[in-house]
């Protein structure tokens, strides 16, 4: 079993299509919707966690691409500007998944992209604005 977190962009024409349910049924995957929005230009945006056989996940992603969905891996979407981060720690308490955490000895703030669910709460909370979210 593997787990993969992806960002899906649905063009307007697909907004009323059951793309996700078809994909998870067809490729025998379980899924967890981490975030879902419809943006101003009426594009659908979804952050999705997929669990299943690695090949099935790849095939499902490929199938969704064929339907016209743009798919990106999640970890590329929240980034930290390490030069801008001062290791203050103001983000620690708002991060719901401990993707942002402080090392007890070094007092450095670490960012683990694999734990990040791209909720974006840290972005405006970070005082020097070192965090950014890109979809």
């Amino acid at each position: 079993m593997a787990e993969s977190r992806i960002v899906l962009h649905f063009p307007k024409k697909l907004l009323d299509q059951p793309v996700i349910s078809t994909a998870v049924e067809r490729y025998k995957l379980s899924f967890n919707i981490l975030r879902a929005d419809i943006t101003q230009d009426q594009e659908g945006l979804m952050v999705l966690g997929l669990e299943g056989e690695p090949k099935s996940i790849d095939d499902a992603v490929e199938w969704m691409r064929e339907q016209g969905v743009r798919v990106q891996p999640l970890e590329k979407d929240v980034t930290r500007d390490d030069e801008r981060c001062t290791d203050c720690g103001a983000c620690i308490v708002v991060c719901p998944t401990n993707a942002l955490a402080m090392d007890a000895q070094s007092r450095e703030v670490s960012f683990s992209a694999d734990k990040c669910v791209a909720c974006g709460i840290c972005v405006p909370v970070c005082p020097p604005r070192a965090m950014s979210i890109h979809f």
């Binding site: 203050c88 720690g89 308490v93 450095e108």
Partner: peptide, 11 residues
Amino acid sequence: VPTTPLSSYVR
């Protein structure tokens, strides 16, 4: 209660 600092000890 979890704690969160605002002042950078590293710096």
